[in-house]
Structures are given as C-alpha cells and as structure tokens.
Nucleic acid binder design. Structure first.
Length: 316
DNA sequence: GCACAGGTAGATT
DNA sequence: AATCTACCTGTG
C-alpha cells in the first residue's frame, strides 16, 4: 500500500503500546498477516488492509483511500479488543508472587491479545504446526495470493472457508502447506457441509467451543486454544506449545508434569486471564528474557506454587 | 546430509 | 493410558 505522510491519522481510542509490545502483539505469533516495513506495520484481516505506526508514543493509522476514519477506527477497536482493559487484567495476574511472570510483563508493557476474525484465526493456526512464524506468514500470503479476494489497495484477503472448500488439496500443497493441506482441505469440506458451525462455536461456552473446534480435522488442543484465545477473546484459553511447555518445565520447575497437569497448573496459578499470561511468557521466552530459548536463565523455586523467590542463576 | 520447527492423528505397547 | 511415528517442507 502506497503511503504519504498526509495519510497518517491519529487514533484517539488507541490502546497504549511501546515498540516492543506493539511489535509483539502484531507480529509475535498471534496473527500472521502483519509485516514490518520501515517505520510502520501493514496488516490485513477480514477485508481490512491498514497500516499502523507508533509516533511519539501514540498509535497512528493509514487506511486505503475511500475508507472512512469511522470505519477504520471501528475495525481497529474490534481487532484490538479496545473494550477490554488489558492493563487491569495484567495487574490481576500473579506477578507479585511470580518473578518469572513479572519479568515477562516488564519486558512487554502494553501487550494485548487480538480479537481476530474466527475463520482466519483457525486457518492461520491450522497452518502453524511445526512451522516457524516467518514460514506460517509465507504460507498465508501464498494462499491469499492464489485464492484470496483482492482488496482495493492491491493486497489480498485470506480466502473464506467456502472458497477453500472449492480448492483441490494439490492447489493448497502448492502454497507450501505440506501435510497441513489435507487438514485445511478436510476442514473446509466439513465447514461447507456445516454452514453454521463457526457461528455456533462463537456463541458457545469455552469448553464447548473447544470441543467443537477439536472435531475439525487437524485441530487438536493447542490449535483449538489458539483459536479460542486469538480469535474469540477467550482469555482463559492457555495454548501449550513447545515454547510454553519449555517455560513451564524449566522456569517453573515442572519436570515430569503431564500436559493435562500443566494445563491445571496454568488455570490455577494464572487464573481467568491465563491466556494473557501465556502470551507474556511466550514473548519473553522468544526474546530470551526468561528461560525457554536456550536455557539462559532459570529461577529456582522448589515448589511451583510458592515461587516467591527472586534468586536467579545461570544455567550450565 | 541431517536435525528441527507455535502439532495432530493413528498405531503400538 | 502412555509412548512412538508418519506427515511436508524450508532453514540452519
């Protein structure tokens, strides 16, 4: 999208961000259609194609010509879940007694959980298994280029599930999806036969919604929880991927705990916004701020539930 | 050449 | 119920 300085508009209702938290919120693995270009980010979701930047601590946006500020700001408000007070939710997390979490929160002040369109959140995470974020983004872009609806500014939206259901699996494989192509294809066919499935999920309680998601081919617990968290704002969902698993095991000392037990720990320790805590920990681990990347730093509480000690030591 | 990457499903023990 | 293993492909 071509930009001129006059295109930038302030966004009065914008949440507070710093460079780290804006970058991590947009391009840290919640969404896969944001790109950093010079001093700004460009993102696509639904039929929106919008640029954002942080200028003197405030968010500014630029939308394609012809889109009204009201429409853009309404789309942004929904996407960023502007009605959710993440500062208050963060303050209610157990960081006062959890130095690992405190370290993560301090590194990414202002981090938020996005509320993305359900269908494309599901799609993005169906592409994600054993892939790194840049590759997931490349897949999404390739699929959008091939099958997506063209937008006014020349970019392309992700295809609808209806459109995906019309595509051959081989065509999806051409977008570097690999074995994930079969999951996408089968899920697309299923959703085509059950037109109300996603909207039913949208209005179902979280446990029920998760069970419905896990009925879909290729959707296990982790992808279901990512979809619930990043697509439906279900902040209690706590996706455990390899990063978060490493953090729980190494930083929280939960060696030998089984997946179900790790989920119990997360629910009890982090509470109703456990998913937000997950995102802080995930961001911090990837940034090397806490243990998880290469085992740089660990804390040593003997008991996971009384981890008030702030002593740190280097990993061998 | 080979291990590994924001997993899942099906088989085997 | 716990533990393998195949599944694609790009990257180091």
């Amino acid at each position: 999208m071509k930009l001129q300085s006059a295109d930038w508009q302030s966004w009065p209702g914008a949440p507070g961000f710093c460079d780290a938290s804006l970058s991590e919120t947009l391009d840290g693995g919640q969404a896969f259609r944001w790109n950093h270009a010079g001093d700004h980010f460009h993102g696509i979701w639904g039929a929106h194609s919008i640029c954002l930047r942080l200028k003197n601590g405030a968010i500014e946006y630029a939308a394609p010509s012809g889109v009204s500020p009201q429409a853009t700001e309404a789309a942004l408000a929904k996407y960023f879940a502007a009605d959710t007070d993440f500062a208050a939710l963060t303050d209610a997390l157990p960081w006062r007694s959890d130095p690992i979490l405190k370290r993560a929160i301090d590194a990414f002040p202002g981090l938020r959980i996005l509320r993305q369109p359900l269908g494309e959140t599901l799609f993005g995470f169906l592409c994600s298994s054993t892939k790194q974020i840049p590759q997931i983004k490349a897949i999404c872009e390739a699929v959008a280029d091939d099958l997506g609806h063209p937008l006014a500014d020349g970019s392309r939206a992700l295809p609808s599930w209806t459109r995906l259901a019309e595509a051959e699996e081989s065509r999806l494989r051409a977008a570097k999806l690999g074995y994930r192509a079969r999951y996408i294809h089968q899920t697309a066919r299923f959703l085509a036969e059950h037109p109300d499935y996603l909207s039913t999920i949208e209005s179902a309680p979280t446990d029920e919604a998760r069970a419905l998601l896990m009925e879909l081919p290729g959707v296990g617990r982790k992808i279901a929880d990512c979809t619930l968290l990043f697509g439906l704002g279900r902040l209690e969902a706590f996706p455990i991927d390899t990063w978060v698993q490493r953090i729980l095991i190494r930083a929280y000392g939960l060696e030998g705990w089984k997946p179900e037990q790790l989920l119990d720990f997360a629910r009890i320790h982090f509470g109703p916004a456990a998913g937000l805590a997950q995102q802080y920990l995930f961001a911090a681990a990837r940034a090397g701020v806490i243990a998880g990347s290469n085992g740089i730093t660990i804390l040593q509480p003997k008991s996971p539930l009384s981890s008030t000690g702030s002593t740190q030591k280097k990993c061998p």
